[in-house]
Design a protein around this nucleic acid. Structure first.
Lengths: 161, 161
DNA sequence: TATTTACCTACTGTGTCAATATGTATTTTG
DNA sequence: CAAAATACATATTGACACAGTAGGTAAATA
């Protein structure tokens, strides 16, 4: 299951992609707009900078911007940076010694097949593909929602049954 | 990522499927054969009984057996019983109120597409499909491995780096 | 120099994972 | 009936990740 880390990261990327022409966008803006704790976003965004997804600029007028064009970001790269390797089972992780059971393991072919499918899916999708889905911002602000309401899963709110 | 709970459960199912004609198989046999802690397996197997996957019988001569034919078990059912819902994001969970962002969420279509793909994959595969992959047990016992070696991921051994 | 911004370190509370430990209940066998 | 073998039940543990919060430092602009 993709955690808030990965989901928020993708939303930050979308925010920055929409802001491409306007230079840097501050974290305060992004956090308020998305209804996410700014402090928590700082942690996420730090990893995104060190991972080479975005570029930060300090001081007044600073903020964040994309490091590449939206077409150049496979979604899988964003997810793997935030969530770790996109593999279904530990024995398929990179750099792990081949499992001694591999030779006769009945389940390995299934995991490999699923792994391939997942990898193809998330590396086939690009950030630019997600921008196509977007509706106008007016529609959404006109609805009169507070920032808090437009969250979608701090996961806490929904998990009590 | 599928945890040991789900992976061990599938291996137990395979063990029991291979034992179909011999009545009940004890947990001790399964645990020793697979090199898994019997005590830990008890927890897993309890959920499998209450989930209707297998049937237990107490007392001498008891053990566990499948509740249905191997063709009647979608792998997805086993995984979801042990790991919880097979959805990539919280907002797609059953019984969760529709996310207020759903209308204009740029990422939801992607998650829905992936969710559908995953569901189809794991509910298309059956326990009987995994049995086809099996090689003879002789090959594996003749290799002179101890039970400990044939584990494949208590996840501890590989996760240090 | 003051303000604004990103950046850094540490901490917290809740929960899950992967077990371990210790017992209870039930069935077969001697 | 007693003993053994089995499943079933409850509690606890240590390590770790998730989702934040708190309080600061460094750099750029006005």
């Amino acid at each position: 299951m993709i955690s808030t880390k990965g989901r928020y990261a993708i939303r930050v990327m979308i925010s920055l992609a929409e802001n491409m022409d306007n230079g840097y966008k501050t974290l305060r803006e992004i956090a308020e707009r998305q209804g996410i704790s700014k402090k928590y976003l700082e942690i996420i965004v730090r990893d995104m900078v060190s991972g080479g997804l975005i570029v930060g600029s300090r001081g007044k007028g600073g903020g964040y911007r994309l490091a590449r064009q939206p077409e150049e970001y496979p979604i899988g790269e964003i997810i793997e940076l935030m969530e770790g390797p996109l593999v279904p089972v530990a024995c398929l992780e990179e750099g792990v010694a081949t499992c001694p059971r591999a030779m006769y393991c009945e389940t390995l072919p299934m995991w490999e097949e699923y792994n391939q499918m997942t990898h193809d899916f998330f590396y086939g999708k690009r950030l630019s593909d997600l921008l196509q889905n977007k509706k106008t911002d007016e529609r959404h602000e006109a609805a009169g929602m507070t920032e808090k309401e437009e969250n979608c899963g701090a996961a806490r709110e929904a998990s009590d049954e």
